[in-house]
């Protein structure tokens, strides 16, 4: 169990270092809440012009919004370091990580928590709680939602790792390619039924962000989806872990370090 302690100490130290910057904490909180409100403002515009989206009412879509924000916040709180990978590959800063006696991927991911994650986490949790209360959701939904959020954050982080590993081949300090999975996650804030079939399948099977809230949420909220969809979140997370780990190991083979 020593390795768990090592990871925990590394994470705690990184978080403490971040929390030293009080102004950053409040700016991050405020701005991530602002970003969520900006997205919600679009929802306000849409529901001013339409009563529902593919049979999902405004409150039900707010549930999807909240789940997405909470999964995003969880990922940013625990696994955010992947966003720095492009710069590290260019500057050769991965050298140090590769000399540690740890599994490089999880250790790398946990050692840079972001403070704005709290804003996304709080906003997402409030939206989910509010929508579940208003919808009179069954007890099973309340019990499963935290698990779905954790699974969602793992699925999302896995996709970030896969896209982040492109940095081993496409050299450059920019992280635009990481915005691809990020924007695909934002697409699942709306019911997948509104999208063309190929895109809906992509978001359920290939980049399975729809699996952690749209599928199981649709079942517990009575959208005539099959019961087994409640199993989709852990399946998607497990699939994501396997793929991300494989791609990371392959990606490291292309890492060339840097000269002095």
């Amino acid at each position: 169990m020593e390795w768990i302690k090592l990871y925990f100490v590394a994470y705690r130290t990184a978080l403490q270092a971040k929390l030293e910057y009080r102004a950053d904490f409040w700016v991050g909180m405020l701005t991530s809440v602002l970003l969520q409100l900006a997205a919600l403002s679009f929802l306000v515009v849409i529901f001013k012009n339409a009563p529902s989206l593919n049979g999902w009412t405004g409150t039900e879509v707010v549930f999807l919004f909240g789940m997405t924000a909470a999964a995003l916040g969880t990922s940013e709180l625990f696994f955010n370091h992947i966003w720095m990978l492009p710069q590290y590959v260019v500057s050769g800063e991965l050298d140090r990580l590769l000399t540690y006696p740890v599994h490089s991927l999880p250790f790398f991911l946990i050692t840079r928590p972001e403070l704005h994650s709290f804003g996304n986490l709080v906003t997402g949790s409030l939206l989910v709680t509010g929508s579940l209360i208003q919808l009179g959701a069954p007890l099973v939904a309340w019990l499963l939602v935290p698990l779905w959020i954790v699974c969602g954050s793992i699925t999302y982080t896995s996709a970030l790792v896969v896209f982040g590993c492109l940095s081993f081949r496409l050299l450059g300090p920019y992280s635009h390619h990481l915005m691809v999975p990020h924007n695909l996650l934002q697409a699942t804030r709306y019911p997948l039924g509104i999208y063309p079939g190929w895109l809906a399948y992509l978001l359920v099977l290939v980049v399975p962000f729809g699996a952690f809230h749209y599928l199981p949420g649709g079942f517990v909220l009575g959208k005539s989806l099959a019961w087994w969809t409640v199993l989709a979140p852990p399946l998607a997370a497990g699939w994501g872990l396997v793929v991300a780990n494989y791609v990371w190991q392959r990606g490291l083979e292309f890492y060339e370090s840097t000269g002095s």
Partner: peptide
């Protein structure tokens, strides 16, 4: 390459409201 991936990401981002509106117009 960074610019092209940036274009792809932006394309996804801008397509979302477009597809939402497409559904709204199709429904009503």
């Amino acid at each position: 390459q960074a610019v092209l991936t940036s274009l792809l990401a932006a394309g996804i981002s801008y397509s979302i409201p477009l597809l939402v509106w497409r559904h709204v117009y199709a429904a009503s």
